[in-house]
Nucleic acid binder design. Structure first.
Lengths: 356, 356
DNA sequence: CGGCCGACTGGGAGCGCTCTCACCGATGCT
DNA sequence: AGCATCGGTGAGAGCGCTCCCAGTCGGCCG
């Protein structure tokens, strides 16, 4: 940066206040154990000089920088196509800035990026990391672990062993419970042939939602299950398939609002009235979709911002050191390690609109 | 951070390689002017020790940290409700990581946050800043200027004097041209009573789009103009008003897809067929909306990711120092200061679908 | 009234890295 | 042969801050 005037240093503040650098430092950092008279002098000097501590110098000795990394894998994916991501960021940002920490956003798209991120995390630029959308066995957690960097994962990790990995702390919404809510509602409506359009089955959120569907319909016809891809198009295709297999279906639970909107359109084109002929329930409650479909979509809402806040809070607590357990936050804390912090599942709830 | 093993320092690398710290440093930073033999030795030492440079120490002396801040005002607003923001971030991230810079995300919600951000920018945590959604005369640019921090603004600043402020460099899409495209298309279709639903008129993007509408329809009936708020609801309300004022209207240009979706619904409820009775054109081409309305929306697309990339590129070029002018990027460079970098307007184009 | 204790304060040693400059041997030139 | 030159290399001085440790100075106890 082009510095116009040489920036004031702690040294200059101390000089102006007529105290030692050590004392000035004490005042700047809270002023414990410094007589009020001196404290005031230093404060005035800081004011007059417009002194701002140099974070690099501080970090050099304290070994932390009040910053955490938010690593987002595959930004090309749905993470960037719906407001999910932005809302999550907002929650994280709020929690972090309340704790006076900064958020460093990193996007991973290809192999090369993994190295970049790995180097960054290893470099000690940040005190901790929030890892998102981990699919396959992802190298990120191991990288972080290797350099001793605390981290929290967003979304239940899906690979073998992840569940039993005691320091793999994650935050996820109650996908399974939400799906149960949706399908239960459909059944309570008296529907008897309830289909489902799932998300890609290599993602835990899709799997969990499908499990919820099965919880309610343990003996369901497999022909009533079709896989989508979280896009409106895919939802439409899956719906068409479902219609071909079971023309008699009278309800559909789509595992995302986007897929539901595609399904709605296919259903309409097939001449089905909604909700009279076929009741439809979505998932996510993405405002720009759910409230504006024709008819408005009954769906399952997850508190996305809260998830972000929770993740940040969990990480912050880990940083604070101590084995401080997270207060059982909204949702059933899922005990993993008897001694460490705990993963959290946030609740979901049904939003009733016209489609079911 | 809990360091398990004391992290290797440049000193230890030098020792292991049998060279001085200075030489080791040279190798780590590119290896200019070091004999191949030594270079190799150092590289091996780095490898064996798993050495990663300490960024804080480096920043302390170089005075820059390969990081830029992305400051987003009022995250509660539309910035977070449509994918606009996420896409922009993606563009910024791509450009930045190509230049090996990091992105520090800061959200400003209230007065208190302004102070926090101001302190952060003044602290030298970052080498530059990208400022978003500046409405009223915003303190941010001045803050940045005061501490000599290079910055680029997203979206044309709207207050008096901003336009003539020669180092207020911004990137915006061609809102006015896009609106001209939309309205021109409607007119070419033979429509004679073309209405428009504007965005909130305290935002330059709304104003510019309205100007584009007027460019094509200089003698239009003011009753054909209604103000919305960029939400589907607001769009619907404005549409209803328009319908009441001019029941004979046969086309509508909505200044955002979200508002268009609301307008579509009101139009449908009023029994108008689209596009037969009323042709509708939106703005933004937000995929989750435009492609899935009933009928699919003809709209104006802006390359949002490109805007992000451009902003980052502009800033990076500023940082690189030199009066290097930005290459006239896609779009008409709008000359402000004859000597400095230049604001950029990115092109928009019409996407034809069924609604018009 | 001397000695101690405790609350403050200052001195100084780094944190890990970059960068200037002096130095060194090997060339190249006159 | 004598001397300026030059690519390479190392020594050392900080960058601005924190924090340990020793020193100072009242006040209070015996």
């Amino acid at each position: 940066m082009p510095e116009q005037t040489p920036r004031p240093t702690l040294e200059s503040v101390a000089e102006r206040a007529g105290v030692s650098r050590a004392t000035a430092s004490r005042v700047v950092n809270g002023g414990e154990g410094v007589r009020e008279a001196l404290r005031e002098k230093v404060r005035r000097a800081v004011e007059e000089l417009g002194y701002v501590p140099n974070p690099a110098a501080r970090t050099l000795v304290t070994r932390h920088n009040r910053a955490i990394a938010v690593v987002v894998a595959e930004p090309g994916s749905r993470l960037f196509s719906d407001p999910f991501f932005a809302q999550q960021l907002r929650g994280i940002g709020r929690e972090l800035s309340a704790a006076d920490h900064q958020m460093v956003l990193m996007m991973v798209e290809d192999q090369h990026d993994y190295e970049r991120v790995g180097r960054y995390l290893a470099g000690g630029h940040v005190d901790g990391a929030l890892l998102f959308s981990l699919h396959q066995p992802d190298p990120l957690p191991d990288m972080a672990r290797k350099v001793g960097l605390p981290f929290v994962v967003g979304g239940r990790p899906g690979w073998a062993g992840a569940e039993s990995d005691r320091d793999l702390v994650y935050v996820d919404s109650d996908n399974r419970g939400g799906a149960r809510l949706a399908v239960g509602h459909l059944r309570a409506l008296g529907r008897t042939a309830i289909a489902t359009v799932t998300g890609p089955l290599d993602q835990t959120s899709s799997l969990d939602r499908l499990d919820g569907y099965r919880d309610v319909l343990p003996d369901g016809d497999p022909a009533l299950i079709a896989e989508g891809d979280f896009t409106p198009d895919g939802g439409g295709r899956a719906m068409a398939e479902l219609l071909a297999r079971r023309p008699d279906l009278d309800a559909v639970f789509a595992a995302s609002d986007a897929m539901a909107s595609g399904a709605l359109r296919v259903l309409r084109e097939a001449g089905r009235r909604i909700p009279e002929d076929v009741a439809v329930v979505g998932f996510d409650d993405v405002e720009s979709i759910a409230a504006w479909t024709e008819p408005p979509l009954t769906t399952v809402r997850q508190d996305i911002e809260e998830m972000g806040r929770l993740m940040a809070g969990l990480l912050l607590r880990r940083l604070a050191g101590a084995g401080a357990r997270p207060a059982a936050a909204a949702g059933a804390p899922r005990g993993l390690a008897p001694g460490g912090p705990t993963s959290v599942i946030t609740p979901t709830r049904l939003i009733l609109r016209a489609s079911a």
